Amino acid sequence: MSFTELVNIPAGINPNVSSAKQATMLSLLGNPRQSYDQECREVTDIRLASLITFRTVGRLRVRGLEPAVDSLERVLADIESDEPDIYAVMGHAGMLCARNVRGSNTSISNHSWGTAIDLTLEGVLDRRGDGRVQIGLTRIAPIFNAHGWYWGAGFRTEDAMHFECSDELIRQWHGEGLLDGLAPATVPDPVLSLGDRGPEVLELQRKLNEAGAQLVEDGIFGRGTHAAVMAFQARNGLSADGVVGPMTREALGL
């Protein structure tokens, strides 16, 4: 059996984890650099760079944020124990890569903080956006989820090769003091803002369209969604900052 055989995306993926929000990443980890494009760039923020590590974990040689690499090491140990045949054919196409999300000029990829990894099986990357996923990835995704990682098959544009530390895990690191020197003393409320993507953004766009917006429901919080949020806030007596916090969520019925 080939672990790269393609199957449909399973139901019920990513239980209890959500993709890391851009506001969470920027507020708790800082801004890796001041400008981004589609090319991989180096981290220029000195504080963040001090937490970047380059080492071997399991069968992979990776460069990423130290708490993420520590967590990945535990994930790989469980995969080696529970799915040894898949573990034996695992590789990766990168972890740290400061750039925008593919095709976006507003969304910073979580690779920019070294908290995401693109995996290969049998030397093959799962093709992004075809709605099909390698069967081997479906078997290791629950292990990643159990350690607080989000599987990119859950994005509107399926990205099954991609695993990233969830919003919940980033916040957990803050609570455990693993981000000392980077993070503020208090954790900001979860919000949706410019640059976010995923199922929560898709639901936001649906609610905005129900309220009269005419957005493409693509699950990406781009400038059109930002403008629609501001217009909704203004119509409903809310601060028109384009950020979806508790009051805007309540007004939208999210």
Rank of each mutant, 00 (worst) to 15 (best):
H174N: 09
D78S: 01
A88K: 01
N8V: 14
N209M: 00
I79Y: 05
R47Q: 05
N100S: 12
V244Q: 02
C40S: 14
I9C: 01
L48E: 07
L26N: 10
G103W: 02
Q205E: 15
P199K: 00
A116Q: 05
A213Y: 08
R132K: 08
L215K: 03
E5D: 13
N105A: 10
E80F: 07
G212Y: 03
D85E: 03
I46L: 11
I108M: 04
I117K: 07
P246K: 04
P246N: 06
S35I: 15
A211I: 09
E203L: 12
I140S: 05
E122R: 01
G148C: 14
L215S: 13
I9D: 03
H174I: 08
S18T: 14
V69D: 04
T44I: 02
L202E: 13
A183C: 06
E158M: 10
E203V: 15
L48M: 14
L137E: 00
V7D: 02
G64Y: 08
L192N: 12
P188D: 05
L121C: 04
E176S: 12
A23V: 15
V244G: 02
G242R: 00
N16S: 04
E122C: 08
I143W: 05
L121T: 10
D167W: 07
L192Y: 14
G237T: 02
R33H: 08
N110L: 15
S2I: 03
D218E: 09
R249F: 06
N16Q: 09
I13N: 03
S193T: 15
F221E: 02
R128L: 06
N100L: 10
L215T: 11
G12Y: 05
Q172P: 10
E176H: 09
S104P: 01
S27T: 13
V216H: 13
D78L: 03
I170S: 08
S109N: 13
L182F: 04
T186E: 00
S2N: 06
C40T: 14
V124T: 03
A185R: 08
C40H: 10
A185C: 11
V191D: 00
L26S: 09
W173K: 12
W149G: 10
A77K: 06
F144C: 07
E168D: 08
G129K: 10
V243C: 05
T24S: 14
L192E: 09
A49E: 04
E217R: 05
G253P: 13
A116E: 13
R139L: 09
H92P: 06
I143P: 04
V229F: 14
G195Y: 11
L178E: 06
N31R: 07
I117R: 12
G198K: 00
N14A: 08
A88R: 01
L254T: 10
L28K: 03
E200M: 10
P67S: 00
L121V: 10
L6C: 03
R139F: 14
I52R: 00
E66G: 01
I108S: 00
V69I: 03
G181T: 07
D82P: 07
T186Q: 09
D196C: 12
V7T: 11
P10C: 08
T120P: 04
L48R: 06
D45N: 13
A234C: 11
G64N: 04
R197S: 15
C40G: 14
E5P: 07
V244Y: 05
G175Y: 12
D45C: 03
E176L: 08
V17K: 00
L72F: 15
A231Q: 11
